[in-house]
Design a protein around this nucleic acid. Structure first.
Lengths: 225, 225, 225, 225
DNA sequence: CATGAATGAGGATTCATTCAT
DNA sequence: CATGAATGAATCCTCATTCAT
């Protein structure tokens, strides 16, 4: 259990604990991560840590829920924008990459959920979490159909699935070695810094082929905007 | 190090060791997996295991290399087929799913590489592995352009990236809880058995939107073949 | 040390603390018992508990002294009765059992003193405590000799020893699992509630053989009064 | 669980582990006793200890079962003797005291079972153990009735109960502080060494009053044999 | 080469006690 | 005096690795 004591902590301290735990779990993975090390790095005692959390698992849960917040914020921000669907999708990529730059550990935490040996967590969190994500994609794409930006015969779920997996891999490529190599090799990128300009470039590259397949035919624009 | 003793083992025994290790690491993840348990389950002594492998890490490496073989076989098989690119891509999905059904543990091993705390392995294996994958995609897609199936203005790498991530998630959804929930929620699937027919259906759903974006314009066919 | 603050507490609160501590120590044993849990269950803060007691050991001592009071009260009550020695001995059993029913935890506390690892406490309390007990038995039995109820050639100490051990086991059988099983198996009792009638029956059964050995010969009565 | 590895140990080593564990648990009590300390004192590693036993509880069980053996041996020995019942009862006391001198720790282990917080163990072992004890007493006393040594109207169970509790306290008085003080104060003993002669004296003192109450009337002998 | 008992450092968790408020 | 959050040494148990047989 995550105890109320944790929520009653002064926000700064609570955030420091979350960030520290996220960083260490992100680096080592849940099972390798060391509780005593987390406490020490967060500048508190193990005892204190265990007044906040009943078990190591609960530390992960708290960190994961923070990761969910961090991700959800990106979605909320983009959904709230009054732009074309295409730009919103691009922004989902770009803002996600920016978020990954700011909070790389939390992206790794997210990735940790899909690791073998994390079934319990996946069972506990994924169903409602993914459902929430699905709803957002659905709303977004339906809107695109209504506004005439998208083809009317789309399999919305399939599109959402492809989009989401691409984002997962792209966000993950910021903090995670595997996804990072995967991306730079497959996209044959020349090494460069993680700037917004770069993010916009990648987003366009990656979205374009799919976009061509889902946009409404009359919407034909020059391929490279 | 993976010692020569391991390669000199009778193939059946070697395979049993790999499969057992794969199964256990797949279930628990590398860091949680227990070497003694692997030895016991494989019907050999820990001592023997340690004459084959210098360290736990090396067991993972051997298992991972087997996972690479398993995956590569799917690609080789599909690439060798003399079919249209579209069917080859569909087959990449379908055969991959079939492979995941046959060897679910090895798919999890693959997923284990992208878990936090596995950087060392990613550094060691990913670069050449991903390069090999990239080459296959490149060849496949270039061929598609030459045969006129694909648009000539494609960003091949980007298409490969999207395709590969989708496959990763789809294959992973067979053994892995997170990806399984992710898929069934996003694709809004009704529960069903993992049959070839089902796999073909999913493959079509998932490939279609992207295919529409990459196929050559004159190639216009009814959406559902 | 048990601080004066504890004795200055309003009696109700003091009693509540003692009873709570007794209950928890009775259930878990001194070493397993948890100070924080005691404080919480008693409705006070650990801090407060530690202003009353300097250490966990002191909590036990306070509780033990209360247990002594509880036991002594039974003895005082029975000794004050103006009955035959035989009835007084029977009453010692019966009233002790009744006391054990009312305050089972305190009987366990008493038992806790004879557990391994409690030497320090035994050294501190047992000598004078047992001496006090011995005096009571001595007075009682001497009186029995004087009134002609008992044989004149008795080894009073030995009789007291046997009596006291039997009482210990009998009282202990109320709250304590071991002694409870021990009693019901050896006495081959059919399960039943702890009523005064039952207590009187057990008391008679258990006292009789010894009574036959210590009563004055001319006192011969039918076995079952 | 007590693993087979433990039973396959060379007897000398196995005994050393049992004796060491018994000694430490006897001194500190189960809950205070330290597993690492036991391992160190036994000259083995914690790891080894945990290949023999799955948990600390199992160490206690093994030690307790040894304690049962030790006690049972005394009973078997005495029961096998072809003596009068009176001498057999005296020998039960004497041999028990001798056993307690030889293996004091195991007597404490036995006492540990009746400590608060040991319910689980009592539940697991006491029922059949006490039943076995009850059978022995029953056989012994029935034989005494048949041979005419004992009164025919005895409540055998009650006699057994009184006898057993007295023995418990007497055996316990060898290693245990509480029972030791209890005995020496109540019996008003002058300090002395634990010799067989002393044991015989105590046995006679303690048995006599009860014996007078249970022996057959025609059996009247001078009080102090 | 194979075995599997043994090792012991490492890690999650507990809890008696303190002390700033 | 009371509070209860914080401390961190202590403890049970695990497991990668070794090595005598």
């Amino acid at each position: 259990m995550i105890n109320s004591a944790f929520y009653n902590l002064e926000p700064k301290k609570r955030q420091r604990i979350l960030d520290t735990a996220a960083k260490i779990i992100a680096k080592q993975g849940f099972h390798k991560a060391n509780v005593n090390e987390i406490a020490a790095a967060a500048g508190i005692s193990v005892g204190a840590l265990y007044t906040y959390f009943d078990a190591k698992e609960d530390i992960f849960e708290a960190v994961f829920m923070e990761a969910v917040q961090v991700t959800a914020e990106v979605q909320r921000k983009v959904v709230a924008q009054n732009e074309s669907l295409r730009d919103q999708l691009l922004n989902l990529f770009v803002e996600g990459l920016m978020m990954a730059r700011r909070r790389p550990s939390y992206v790794e935490i997210y990735l940790n959920m899909m690791a073998p040996g994390m079934e319990t967590f996946a069972d506990k969190f994924s169903p409602e979490l993914e459902t929430a994500g699905a709803i957002i994609y659905e709303a977004l794409l339906k809107k695109g159909i209504h506004t005439g930006e998208l083809r009317t015969d789309l399999d919305i779920r399939a599109v959402a699935y492809v989009l989401d997996n691409t984002m997962l891999a792209l966000y993950g490529s910021i903090p995670n070695r595997f996804f990072s190599i995967h991306r730079s090799v497959l996209l044959q990128e020349s090494p460069g810094r993680l700037t917004r300009v770069w993010a916009e470039g990648v987003a366009r590259r990656v979205l374009l082929p799919l976009w061509e397949g889902i946009r409404a035919p009359e919407n034909k624009l020059p391929n490279n905007t």
